[in-house]
Design a protein around this nucleic acid. Structure first.
Lengths: 146, 146
DNA sequence: TACATTTGTATCGTGTACGACATAATCGCA
DNA sequence: TGCGATTATGTCGTACACGATACAAATGTA
């Protein structure tokens, strides 16, 4: 591959990564509409459904997002009454994010989403083994870049 | 895997995809700063360096972006005098996007970027073969979702 | 050749993303 | 026990992303 060819869109790994991410995110739109949350908001809920009551800092590490992205996002989730934001008593600097009852209840509605997405992505050209190794490479990239 | 486990962050393919995309995009920041462009702007330039003079519609298809994203982005590139926007004479509806001299010259400065990114991503745990099959799976996902 | 439909681009509103910077609480240590 | 450094979160400005919608140019067709 010549230097010029390296500048071709497809030869930059980041480009298909960027496109695949956006296209798969788009697929969640209609499903998440029923929960009245956006995709990043859904990711926060996933993190909280897995482990309730985390600080903003813990969530930034979990989601690889900066606080300046997460803070307003969390405020919107608070407005929707899915989470609560409380200053920690032991460390006044940190803010504890917890699910409200309504936020916990939403989990039941969300249970069907992974399956529905899997159906949309599923394709005879991608088998389970391929998906597994794809997933492992993704993890390595995140390790290296994160 | 139980239904509840499917809700775990890591078990949703979209999540590592989303994280990997953002983290790799972040890596371009310092390199692109020298060219005074953002990452999506860089993608537009890559497309134009490969094939100069495309309509907005052709670029949306190439980059999988909507016109409402691309239009303001292109106006910013025009302000930086890297591209020109001209109504097509044969079809007054379409707008031709072309590189200016300054935009063409920028290509020389960009030639070193793919190599520098490769160095950053390169890791003994990811070999060329793995990267190739990873890339192929990405393409399939884009095909299915696009 | 009228005129409904399609096509190509653009505008608007909302919600991420993130760099740079601000601020208050906590910590480390002289 | 002060007090500078660190930590946790937040604000601000800029730039994507995209759904919904608008609109003029082009097209198809009766």
């Amino acid at each position: 591959m010549t230097t010029a060819e390296k500048l071709h869109l497809e030869n930059q790994l980041c480009f298909p990564l960027y496109v695949a991410s956006r296209l798969t995110t788009r697929m969640y739109g209609p499903l998440l509409e029923e929960l009245d949350v956006t995709y990043p908001q859904y990711l926060v809920l996933l993190a909280l459904w897995q482990t309730d009551s985390q600080t903003v800092g813990e969530l930034t590490k979990r989601l690889y997002l900066e606080t300046n992205t997460l803070t307003p996002l969390l405020k919107r989730l608070e407005q929707k009454q899915y989470i609560s934001r409380k200053r920690s008593v032991t460390d006044e600097r940190s803010v504890q994010i917890s699910l409200t009852e309504s936020g916990q209840a939403l989990k039941e509605q969300a249970l069907c989403i992974p399956e529905k997405i899997a159906e949309l992505v599923r394709d005879s050209t991608i088998d389970m083994q391929e998906l597994t190794s794809f997933y492992q490479t993704l993890q390595k990239i995140i390790q290296n870049a994160g």
